[in-house]
Design a protein around this nucleic acid. Structure first.
Lengths: 136, 136
DNA sequence: ACCTAAAAACTAAAGCCTTCGTAGACCTAA
DNA sequence: TTAGGTCTACGAAGGCTTTAGTTTTTAGGT
């Protein structure tokens, strides 16, 4: 029995800079190196080559796809932001919240960092999902 | 005006191994190097010196406190697990969920990875917190 | 007091992540 | 066709993380 070396469900999370650039690309759907740099937050200065390198790494990891356009590349996410969000949640539920989603929610609602609107939105999300479940 | 070099609210998250060992120490409240090794999950083999090094690093970062006992040290967390949980949640809400807690909950409840018991517990947590809020 | 076993401290190597400089490829326009 | 500017690929430097071997310290028994 071989050790399974390619476990698609157990990919690591993105690194800090990778996430930073992916956040931009998820928003604009696709873009060139120059366009991504354009959308970095003010005060975040990265050399053209740095951004280019990170995007190339993401492409090698198959997280970005690419197509030629004129002299450059246009990069586009291969994975949905919501899939990555789910992966992140799974990860921290396992590593920080003892594998129990309720422990995460308990921490979230008891931390006194949510305002009334946050609460309303959260309750609404859960009620929506519960109606959905009952329907089935 | 000096740049604030010690910003207590902006500490970085723990690294992977640091979190692994802290999880054990939060559970047992305090322990020696040998005791922590004892409680590593089966299949996780770390040399005594590796665990010792990580615990010493955590002590230097003031995340663990220590007291002598016989010829060894007993380590004990200086920060509450719940505080670290809150910090983790803030971090991923900012970096992954656009700063909106409701987006996190939306992802959590719509991911179809929660069973009925998870839902019950989560609803209970929120109701409890809402009752609490109304009281105030 | 002294010896030994156990623990801590020190040191270092291997491996990633981040950043960017350099060299060269490739368009485009004169 | 060639010059100039733009973009990519490569790779290296620096810093942090992880892991563990070696050396030093120290408690505890005789």
């Amino acid at each position: 029995m071989l050790e399974n070396e390619t476990k698609p469900t157990e990919q690591k999370l993105l690194t800090e800079v990778e996430l930073e650039l992916m956040t931009i690309l998820w928003r604009i759907e696709e873009g060139t190196v120059a366009e991504v740099i354009e959308l970095l937050p003010a005060g975040r200065n990265l050399a053209y080559t740095s951004v280019s390198t990170i995007l190339r790494i993401l492409e090698q990891k198959n997280i970005l796809g690419t197509r030629k356009a004129g002299r450059g590349h246009i990069y586009r996410p291969n994975i949905l932001k919501s899939d990555y969000e789910a992966k992140t949640l799974n990860h921290i539920i396992q590593k920080v919240f003892d594998g129990t989603p309720a422990a995460l929610v308990r921490q979230l609602v008891s931390s006194n960092q949510l305002n009334d609107q946050d609460f309303e939105e959260i309750v609404e999300e859960i009620e929506k999902q519960l109606r959905n479940k009952v329907q089935k």
